[in-house]
């Protein structure tokens, strides 16, 4: 959990590495999110549309970032805005590392805010998505 006084602009925060994505996880995420696009659960279908096999839901990777954000925010900061841009695909076996950089800190209406730049990376610093979250302290 981070606190406002311990942060400074340009600071890189401790990262979070998730266990490798599994096919079972994609089935679970399909069920929980209601996104049953067979691209995420049916290898034969995915290959027909030119993929090596099933690919992860972009929103699952955003879910990893949300886990990371809430771990950082703990119970002292509340997210007010959270966004992500999807880049490269994630496939079963990929291990995603979530990283955050303090972009900006400011005070508005007497409240303290921190803007974090987020990235989700596969091994070897291969970015699959980037985003941003605003935390209110």
């Amino acid at each position: 959990m981070v606190s406002y006084v311990d942060l400074h602009e340009g600071q890189q925060l401790e990262s979070l590495t998730k266990p490798a994505v599994t096919k079972v996880q994609l089935v679970k995420y399909a069920g929980a999110s209601g996104d049953f696009n067979p691209l995420h659960t049916d290898d034969a279908f995915a290959q027909k549309v030119g993929m090596p096999g099933v690919i992860a839901h972009g929103m699952l990777v955003m879910g990893f970032l949300s886990e990371y954000v809430m771990k950082l925010a703990g119970t002292t900061a509340v997210p007010t805005n959270f966004k992500m841009r999807f880049g490269a695909i994630t496939v079963p076996g990929d291990q995603i590392t979530c990283k955050a950089l303090v972009n900006r800190m400011y005070v508005e209406d007497g409240k303290q805010f921190v803007v974090l730049d987020l990235t989700a990376e596969k091994e070897a610093s291969h970015v699959v998505g980037s985003g941003q979250v605003v935390l209110k302290f």
Binding site: M59, L60, S66, E67, M70, T75
Partner: peptide
Amino acid sequence: AEAIGDPNPLYVDEAYATTTIYGGIIAPLT
């Protein structure tokens, strides 16, 4: 939360969540 593999007790543990600023269980950000 389970599908994401997010172990944060805020999403499942009412007793814990009640003691936080949220005052009870909340849903994950996405």
